[in-house]
Amino acid sequence: MHLKKEIKIVIVIIIFSIFFSFLYFSMFSEKDFKPKAMIGKNLPNLSSKTLYSEIEKDLKSIAENEKFILNVFASWCVPCKVEHPYLMKLKEQGFKIVAINYKDNPSNAKQFLEKYQNPFQEILLDPKGSLAINLGVFGVPETFIIDNNFKIIDKHIGPINENFFQKVMNIK
């Protein structure tokens, strides 16, 4: 097969273009990590002492087969202050919100909630971050929407915003 040199060069360029465009677009098809790996899975059965009662409680028993929001927060986390008004708004709309207090000092957490008000029905303590790992949490704040069968239907990394609020309202 004796092709002209120019044709050979064109063929090589086409093959390389296809190959590199495949690599380029595959960079966007899957992100570096799957932050939403937990979506669609069942909520693990977690239990811990609570912030106010110091009694060991089970997350599923707090939820009582109701749709609810699970928020991971800490008093030292600045974005948690940013999202707090939206949590208050969700509480006003009648949503049950359960919190996990991540690697925090309980007295600081109480002060935080006194200052910004408490939107949470119950707050489980997670002093070593072990509950967070069971939920596939990357950092604080993180918010999960859980249906009445304890299935995680959505997750938001970072402070929740108006979009998330609207999404929760639509699910309701």
Binding site: F19, F22, L23, S26, F33, K34, A37, K41, I133, L135
Partner: peptide, 24 residues
């Protein structure tokens, strides 16, 4: 892997989406 996805491991297992990584 169940909590954070396949990409938490540095040495990923062979899947269709990362096949190019192994075959190329």
């Amino acid at each position: 892997k169940d909590k954070y996805g396949q990409n938490i491991i540095f040495n990923p297992t062979f899947t269709l989406s990362n096949s190019a990584l192994w075959i190329v």
